[in-house]
């Protein structure tokens, strides 16, 4: 091993490089694609990204509505031009709509899953269909947004042409689902009673605790390697900004999701009820493309893959396994290329 002095010198060199980069760097913010807000409902906004592909006119028969999770912010899908799933999709000719759930505050603490799925998501679907002059749309749900999308497709199947689930948990009883294990003995009702909403910072701590060293101390130590150049630093700082930009989870939705979905494994068992109806995945008949990451530590692949056996009535079930983690599945260049290519294929028929 190198001597301690050599290690110190190497560290100093890296540190100085990082400091010089930060000293010269402007304020860094997300750099989103051009868009238009076409609907607002309370704190929820529906954003449209028009296709930029001019080559062969309309390629895809239906608009694509993306339903992101309530936790974290959806602009991770459009962080910067070089790392934007949405930019890739519109360049390929997709007309993309994105739901922005906003930042819940204390007055929103009574909003539950029925409100998010049966009201806001429904309003977004209606607005999307009206704006695009379409009878049906393709729905892409990301993570918890995928759970919402599965539920919505059961409630209003006539509006959904095809369904895509991306890094979506389905079966919470699979081995190694650390997130589910961590909250298994937590009394969510008491937590919500004490705090109102579940704060974004508590959620961030929960996710970081899934890999305490890699996402904690190790990440701190390796920050210097992400600040070698301005370009690298911009990407890193945008990502850091997004990680810290975590909205609160409304109290009621936190209780319902943690209990009904996670603890009772409600979606897999068909015991989860939304808008008074049981969510029975065996009733899903529409085409499904299920995408997951083989290195996803947040949602184990087995949890996502469980959809295959549960959605047995699907007219066309496909899977795509990406060699990526939870966020990497739609942020890394390689994954995005594969993802967009497969979406082009799936949506073009």
């Amino acid at each position: 091993m190198r001597s301690f002095k050599q290690q110190m010198q190497a560290h100093q060199k890296r540190l100085l490089q990082a400091i010089e980069t930060l000293a010269a760097l402007e304020q860094v913010k997300p750099s989103p694609s051009p868009s238009q807000v076409i609907m607002t409902a309370d704190k929820v906004r529906l954003i449209h990204f028009a296709p930029t592909c001019q080559a062969t006119g309309v390629k895809f028969k239906a608009p694509l509505l993306i339903c992101y999770a309530l936790v974290n912010r959806p602009y991770i899908l459009d962080l910067e031009p070089e790392r934007s799933l949405i930019a890739d999709l519109v360049a390929a000719g997709h007309s993309v709509y994105l739901i922005d759930w906003g930042y819940p505050d204390t007055t929103d603490q009574h909003l539950g899953l029925d409100d998010y799925i049966g009201d806001y998501l429904r309003s977004c679907v209606s607005a999307c269909l009206e704006h695009s002059n379409s009878e049906q749309l393709d729905l892409l749900g990301v993570c918890q947004g995928g759970v919402f999308s599965l539920c919505y497709s059961l409630l209003f199947p006539q509006q959904i042409r095809k369904l895509i689930t991306l890094v979506t948990p389905v079966d919470t009883s699979v081995e190694g689902f650390t997130l589910a294990q961590m909250i298994s003995a937590v009394n969510i009702e008491t937590l919500v009673k004490a705090q109102g909403n579940v704060s974004g910072s508590v959620l961030n701590q929960l996710y970081a605790n899934l890999k305490p060293l890699e996402l904690g101390l190790y990440k701190q130590l390796n920050q210097l390697d992400n600040l070698k150049s301005s370009a690298q630093a911009r990407t890193f700082l945008r990502m850091e900004h997004w990680l810290a930009d975590s909205p609160d989870l409304t109290g009621r939705s936190a209780v319902e999701f943690a209990t009904g979905f996670f603890k009772h494994n409600g979606l897999a068992k068909g015991t989860l009820h939304i808008c008074g109806q049981p969510m029975d995945l065996s009733q899903l008949s529409l085409p499904i493309l299920n995408i997951f990451g083989s290195k996803d530590h947040l949602v184990p692949p087995a949890s996502s893959k469980a959809l295959k056996s549960l959605a047995k009535s699907s007219s066309e079930y496909q899977e795509l396994e990406l060699k990526a983690g939870h966020i990497g599945a739609f942020v890394s260049q390689t994954s995005r290329n594969t993802l967009v290519s497969r979406l082009n294929q799936f949506r073009s028929s």
Partner: peptide
């Protein structure tokens, strides 16, 4: 470390300890 940590959560005692910590703090 991360592997040992995740393995510990496969067992009930760790899950219960985690739950007790969060629940007592909420209380």
């Amino acid at each position: 470390y991360d592997h040992a940590y995740r393995q510990a959560f496969n067992d009930q005692p760790m899950q219960i300890a985690q739950g007790a910590l969060v629940n007592s703090l909420a209380q």
